[in-house]
Each structure stands twice: as structure tokens, then as C-alpha cells.
Write a protein that binds this DNA or RNA. Sequence first.
DNA 1: CTTCATGGATCAAAATCTATACCGTTGGAT
DNA 2: ATCCAACGGTATAGATTTTGATCCATGAAG
Lengths: 234, 234
Amino acid sequence: MLWGLRPVEPRAAYGLAVDLLRRQIHAGLLLPAEKLPAERQLSDRFGISRVTLREALRVLETDEYITVRRGAQGGAFVADEDRLCELARRRMLRAPAKTMRVVEFLTVNQMAAARLACMRRGPAEMKRMREAVAMMHAARTAPHRKQAEALFLLALGDATQNPLLARAIEDGLAELFLPYDTPSTSEAGTVALVNFERLLAALNAEGVGEAEAAMADLHGLLWDTVRRLGRAAA
Amino acid sequence: MLWGLRPVEPRAAYGLAVDLLRRQIHAGLLLPAEKLPAERQLSDRFGISRVTLREALRVLETDEYITVRRGAQGGAFVADEDRLCELARRRMLRAPAKTMRVVEFLTVNQMAAARLACMRRGPAEMKRMREAVAMMHAARTAPHRKQAEALFLLALGDATQNPLLARAIEDGLAELFLPYDTPSTSEAGTVALVNFERLLAALNAEGVGEAEAAMADLHGLLWDTVRRLGRAAA
DNA sequence: CTTCATGGATCAAAATCTATACCGTTGGAT
DNA sequence: ATCCAACGGTATAGATTTTGATCCATGAAG
């Protein structure tokens, strides 16, 4: 008896590069309007040829994730904030329930990560999380806040010393492609910052219960945001 | 600033087929000594050419996951029980801590799955779980028990209606490559069966607390097994 | 207006995958 | 004892993808 031998789906190298870049944009690690490295450098980083990288850029350009300008000081640029918001909205409209499932998955794994990281976090990960909180303080725009939060959560995943858990968080963040906060919710951003600091302090003190509480509050905010966006879409 | 633009790792189609088959063996879905379909049929299922499939079989044969016999009634056969146990032991010795992390990851996501499946399970998934429990009853050997348990847990993942969660469980089971239970623990197998039945009943009755308790007990048994294997390896 | 870092384009060679056909082996049916 | 059908094993030609290399086109800075 054979169980679930599904067709294999070979992925061309250019497709993998597309995924990687798109995930970085979704997670907010790449900022709107940010300039990507020159093609020759990017292809080096990815370990693929320039021709292949260009195929990937062509796909992302077609999907309006990036724009490409020629000439000196030209290059590939991430789409601007408005366009990314539009893409995010469109994506959420295509499958409204999917976003809820992603948040659900993140809740499960990030709560566990908060607990485990308390016991296992190394100095390197603590440093990354401290730096991320500093970035949140310095951030004056929604994209910068989102970037800092993603960096914090990725560091949290690594702090568990559990590759599967870290990967789950990475995948969840890459799937969670939300429009940037509107100014009306800048107050909520402050509340989030407070809870990230609570979480950081709890990790420092190995306070498992406190870390879980802070993470729970953060997900409370996230659920509020998702519900609000869901209503706005309807 | 660029965050974590790692090299892309293009995977050839034959490598994906290797992974798929290896994962099925690890998860216990493919039984020891089981005959795989003929090359012409397998390549069809995978959607790859026979030549490419044969590359994959060659790799698995080299790693001693399968053996290939020629002639009528020949074909590719999963390695026998002893060899699979040996491979599993070798794998656990290479990275003893890794197994713990996989169990940890499974605990987190399967506990969540038990809770969510209570609310969302559809009739199709309930049927699969009932059939899996029936298979456990009928099973007279460790491999058959393991296969039935894997089928149950995969159905549980699907019952959450959360693709990310289902995928996490699938990945965890594929990473968890344990030697088959020795006869000395057949008693523990009975305890496991009781808890699978408890879980199934709780899912039927939408008893969230009871479902979580049953799943927690199942993971208690799993942790016992892993600890025992860890001691045996040392 | 020149410079030069950038994207744009082309081409031949290598690697991978596919489709098809045919050969060799083996166990069971006649 | 012979034949046959179901297998794995092998060979070949062609399509697709990736690469490395080279040269062209653009346009902002000096």
C-alpha cells in the first residue's frame, strides 16, 4: 500500500531566487523603495549566474514587487510603500482565511519559542534581540518598525537552538504579508514596543512565565490588527 | 542593509525524489521490505522520467535505504527491518541532541493540532483517523504500528485545516527516524493505543481538554522512548 | 562632456531532464 | 523444456536550464 506519493515539483534556480527575495519583502526585511545590490553582486550572493538572477528579477518586476532602473545609480528597487500595501491587500482578499491560519501557526510556535528561548538563549541571539529593540526605538516609520520586529522574532527563533522551530517562525513570517500599519494605529505600535521590551527582559532573567505573558500580549495585538484588516477588506 | 540573503540551493528533480522516498521511510509510511511500484509506474506518479527516477533509486540504494532486484517479480524493495534500525541508530548517534529537538517541535505542533482539530475536523479526516486506529488494532508488528500512528497524526494535522501546521507535523515526522520498538516495549504500545483511542473519542466529542490530555500522554510515551534510546546509544 | 557603475543582450558550452526504443534477467505459465 | 510477460538495464537524440564570457546602452556625478 502506498501513502501519498505526490508528484515531485522540481524548481528552477531562478524560481528559488524569486521565492527568497519575495519572502524577504513579505517578512519586511527588505524595506519599501530599498535598493538591492547590483546584479553582479546579487548573483554572487545567491551563487547563481547573472543570467539566471535576471530571470528572477524579471518575474519580480512583472509581479510589481520591484522596479528596475538603468544607468549609473540604477538597479533593482523594492516597490514603494503604497504598492506593497496594495499587493498585501490583494493577497489577503484572494484568501482571507489563510491569513488567520498563518497567525495561528505563528502564535503556536512563537509562544513555544518564547518559553524555550528563556532556557537556551546564547549571547549572540540576545545581542540581536537587543539591537532589534534599539531599532524599534529609532524607527520613525511603519516599515522600519516591521523590519525591527521581524529581526527580533527571527533571533528569538534561533535562540531556541531548535532549527525546526526557527524555520517554522521564518516560514510563518514570510507567509504573513500584511499592509503596513496606518497612522491611526501608531499608538498600538507603542504598546507593541513595550511588550517586546518585556519579552527581552524576561529572556534576560530567564522568567519563563513573564516571557510567555509578553508574547501572548504581542499576539493579542497581532490578532487585533488582523481582525481590523479583515473588517476593512470586507 | 541586507539581512540574510543566503545562497540559493537548486535541487535536481532526482534529489527531490530521493527526499520524498526517504521521508516516507523515515516516517514509517513505507514498511520494511515493502515492494515499491515498478519504475515505469513510479516515474509516472512522481511526474519525472524513468531515467531521472533511476538516479534517485541509485542514491537510495547506495545509502542502503532500498535494494533493487532484477527479473520478473523484481523491483525496488525497502530495506529490511534490521537495516532500517541500524540506519536509524547511526543517524541518532551522529546528532543525539537533534532527535530531542525534533520531538520538541512535534510536541508543540501536535498539541496545538489536537486542540484545533477538535473544532475544525471534517468527516474525511475523522474517517482517516478511525481507520488508523483500526490499523493499530490489527497491527502485529512494530513497523505496522508505527505506520498506523503516522497515518493518524498526518490526518490530525489535516484536520486542523491549517496547511502550515499540517506541514510542520509532516516535516517533524519525516525528521523523526527512530529504530522500531524492541519487543520489550510492546506493553508501551498498548498504552499508546489507548491514548490514540482517547484522542479520537475526544475529537469526536469536541472535548478540547481531553484531547490535549491524551496528546500530552502520547508525548510522554514518546519522550520515554527517546530517552531510553538515548541511554542505549550511550 | 567624459567617466564608469550600472542594466541589457547575445552566444557557445555544460549539465540536467525527457522521450523512446531496445536489451537482459527471471519466475511462472504452458 | 519452452515460452512469455514483467521487470530492471542501457543507449541515443533532443529539449530545457544554467553558466561564463563578452560586448553594448544608459544616465547620473563630476
